[in-house]
Amino acid sequence: MAEKKIVDGRGSFCPGPLMELIVALKSSQIGDELEVLSTDKGSANDIPEWVHKVGHEYISTTEEGGVWHITVRKKK
């Protein structure tokens, strides 16, 4: 059963939130959904790029009160 996890990268700067996502992906199963919280706008742009490049699935990005929510699904 796929899980949904939150990766809290708030307060950290690039590439901190990306590294936290990668650590979380390592301990996840294929199909799990991970939602990265980031206050760093650069990471909000960079994480989807990384997800496309390495072959996971990018789902969405939303911003609320200065916090970006970037959701990805582990594909491999």
Binding site: F13, G16, K26
Partner: peptide, 17 residues
């Protein structure tokens, strides 16, 4: 002065991850 990942941590993650 900010919560930027330390360079040594990033180098270690480059190896580990």
């Amino acid at each position: 002065s900010k919560k930027v990942p330390e360079f040594k941590t990033l180098f270690e993650q480059a190896v580990e991850l």
